[in-house]
Nucleic acid binder design. Structure first.
Length: 419
RNA sequence: GUGGAUGUAGCUCAGCUGGUGGUAGCACCUGGUUGUGGCCCAGGAGGUCGUGGGUUCGAGUCCCAUCAUUCACCCCA
């Protein structure tokens, strides 16, 4: 067998997929509590959409996109751009002044895979469009925190403000001046960064750079009046909702479109991939994409990373996929059991049956492995007398069942088993 | 794109300075119980030792290349 999944692409097998379902189920429940609606989006978009939304100069656009060059289309590397495209295309701002939307699905980035990072990965993406209220920012973070808490994960929240087009240029100037003075002390990456994206120097992991940057001018000290007001409003909101967070004035987001509030949910349990979720406000982006002048904020949760955390936390999920196992011995019994199983399934029961002609012992073993709470044993002798045996696997008690016509037998079994 | 580590059964792994691939564990199949699961016992099946070259009388073992996996950097969820 030489055909294998592509590097960075992964199958999610039974046993793990249950965790995904639980994660997604809980997320949907919580998104509903906060009055979010689902939107399903295509995976392919015009390449232009991403270069405009994410930024020409970002790593994602420069070297990580799966693009069909001849067709000018790209497999989405993130969800926000697609979601905003749909929002603009369908005039959703007219239908509701404030839209709360979420979407769940795969994203694609051509990066070198490592722990918690794949080339096809999955995100749960949440966006609120049409509100500048700092309470929305607080609510978003509170919702993320609630989801993580209800998953039983302990994750910390860090927040920062990146200001806006009014205040960021001023900050940039003083940061550049500061970096110029220490250019020689910075690592090679940061020397490059101080030209291409000076803000990034602030969150370099190199200890020497960190030290240099400690005294750097802070974004938070350069906020304009509106941004400062907004920022303190967000903090008040978080306090009111009892969300624990810390300020990280060095936190910078990788995408160009962020303004004001940015935040990350951080864990120490995933190696180099600290962020399980991240997002922020992007007040100018919709307009920039040709839409109405509407503010927005959103964040994405990395599902692979959450599942890894869940796997570390609990070894195994109990899988109970079956209500009844039908064990048949002989042709007559198998013939009868085959139809009976179908009748039970039609009535909503989860039924497993072995059709390989195994010994009763083999069938019992299968039933045990499947975790079937009951086994209906159809033996030739009993069948001849119109009877069968129902075994409770936990108590090992068995009772005789009188087989009437199929419909009646189904009813009897459902009644006994649902007790 | 850069650096390190690792490729032996479905999975986890032994395999010494080169000398016939492991009674290894888990899982699987059969039997011990003419028709009763988990535990136990016995047996069985399962391999191009990632791939291709090279060195050698002889390579799982040494060398080169290549592919894959993985961790980290860059970057990011």
């Amino acid at each position: 067998m030489n055909i294998k999944a592509l590097n960075g692409f992964k199958d999610i097998l039974p046993g793990e997929v249950e965790l995904w379902q639980r994660l997604e189920g809980l997320a949907r429940d919580i998104f509903a509590r906060f009055n979010f609606s689902e939107i399903r989006l295509p995976i392919l978009e015009k390449t232009d959409l991403f270069t405009r939304a994410i930024g020409e100069a970002t790593d994602i656009v420069e070297k990580e996109m799966y693009t069909f060059v001849d067709k000018q289309v790209t497999m989405r590397p993130e969800a926000t751009a697609s979601l905003l495209r749909a929002y603009i295309e369908h005039g959703l701002h007219v239908q509701k002044p404030v839209q709360r939307l979420f979407t769940i699905g795969p994203m694609f980035r051509h990066e070198r895979p490592q722990k918690g990072r794949l080339r096809q990965f999955h995100q749960m993406d949440v966006e609120v469009l049409g509100s500048t209220s700092p309470r929305i920012d607080a609510e978003m973070m509170a919702m993320g925190a609630m989801l993580l808490a209800e998953m039983g994960l302990s994750v910390s929240l860090e927040m920062n403000s990146l200001g806006c087009p009014v205040c960021r240029p001023g900050f940039r100037v003083s940061l550049l001046a500061f970096l110029d003075d220490r250019h020689q002390a910075l690592c090679d990456d940061c020397k490059r960064r101080s030209v291409t994206n000076p803000l990034r120097v602030l969150d370099c992991k190199n200890p020497r750079c960190r030290e240099q940057v400690l005294e750097a001018p802070s974004l938070l000290d350069h906020l304009c009046g509106d941004c400062a007001d907004h920022f303190s409003g967000v903090q008040k909101g978080l306090e009111q909702l009892g969300v624990r967070y810390s300020l990280n004035k060095f936190m910078v987001r990788g995408l160009d479109y962020y303004t004001r509030t940015t935040f990350e949910f951080i864990t120490g349990d995933l190696g180099a991939q600290a962020a399980v979720g991240a997002g922020g406000r992007y007040d100018g982006l919709i307009e920039q994409l040709g839409g109405p002048s509407v503010p927005g904020i959103g964040f994405a949760l990395g599902m692979e990373r959450l599942v890894l955390l869940l796997q570390q936390k609990e070894a195994e999920l109990p899988v109970s996929g079956v209500d009844l196992f039908v064990a048949a011995l002989g042709t007559q019994s198998t013939h009868f059991g085959f139809a009976l199983a179908h009748g039970l399934r039609t009535s909503g029961m989860r039924v497993a049956m072995d059709l390989e002609g195994r010994s009763l012992k083999g069938q019992m073993k299968l039933a045990g492995r499947l975790g079937a709470p009951h086994v209906l044993i159809l033996g030739e002798n009993e069948l001849a007398e119109g009877k069968a045996v129902l075994r409770n696997m936990a108590t090992q008690q068995q009772q005789e069942i009188v087989l009437q016509d199929e419909a009646a037998t189904v009813q009897i079994l459902i009644k006994i088993i649902s007790l």
